[in-house]
Design a protein around this nucleic acid. Structure first.
Length: 224
DNA sequence: TACCAGGAGAAAA
DNA sequence: TTTTCTCATGGT
């Protein structure tokens, strides 16, 4: 069954988050390619660790697909040590760089439709739905809502999701309800991550944070 | 000391 | 097809 969330409620939650945290100015990267590298590295890892990895990598080679591919995998893995899962991520990053060059880099990929681009990204080993959608939204400015663990957790706590919906179900529901709004998706996901990092880990129950007012919704279960 | 973090793929059931 | 396991460092 498809998840259904009211548009007004989604916008109210967004307004609460925005008034609490302000603009997040995402993604924290200098170039679209750096966004892509960050998206691969941040899998199941906090951004502070990714920054360290990027700094080590940047000290060893320019942040380009060719330069990364020119590094031996063991050396790349050593750069990525602070990120965690460094052996796996070195393999995944190399696979991504190879695919990126193969598909014509930024210019070649930019010509594809969002659906085609998403399909190509998901075809790269190590790029799953969330990583692909991070790249689509923040590197290619495509109207794709990124669903991550925090998105699922927060909307579940607010009673908007059961919590066991599939990734595509949640994404489709959010995109259908909100309409294709790149700026809104960009800020919403950034705010969800900010809220998740600051609040969800320390306050286990819904209603103990800036979203308390939103918890008054009749459908809210408020069970953490 | 133990738990968890902005996932994804492979293996097992 | 679904569930479980593995990858790994570093902060709390």
């Amino acid at each position: 069954m498809a998840a259904r969330i009211e548009r007004g409620r989604l916008l109210a939650i967004f307004a609460h988050l925005f008034s609490t945290y302000g603009p997040q100015d995402w993604w924290p990267a200098k170039t679209p390619f750096e966004v892509m590298v960050g998206a691969v590295l941040t899998q199941h890892t906090s951004w502070t660790h990714v920054v360290r990895g990027l700094e080590r990598l940047g000290a060893r080679a320019p942040l380009t697909a060719r330069a990364i591919l020119a590094l031996p995998e063991t050396e790349l893995a050593d750069c990525l040590r602070p990120v965690g899962y460094f052996n796996i991520k070195a393999r995944r990053l190399r696979a991504f760089c190879a695919a990126y060059l193969d598909q014509g880099e930024q210019n070649g990929l930019s010509r594809l439709t969002t659906a085609e681009l998403r399909h190509r990204l998901l075809g790269v080993k190590g790029v799953g739905p969330e990583t692909a959608d991070d790249i689509l939204l923040y590197a290619f400015d495509r109207p794709v809502f990124v669903v991550d663990a925090y998105t699922r957790r927060i909307f579940s706590r607010l009673g908007e999701l059961a919590g066991n919906e599939g990734y595509e179900t949640i994404r489709h529901s959010l995109e259908t309800t909100l309409g294709p709004d790149i700026a809104l998706y960009n800020e919403y996901h950034a705010l969800i991550v900010r809220h998740g990092k600051e609040i969800c880990r320390t306050k286990p129950r819904c209603g103990e944070c800036c979203l308390a007012d939103c918890c008054a919704h009749p459908g809210s279960s408020s069970q953490g």
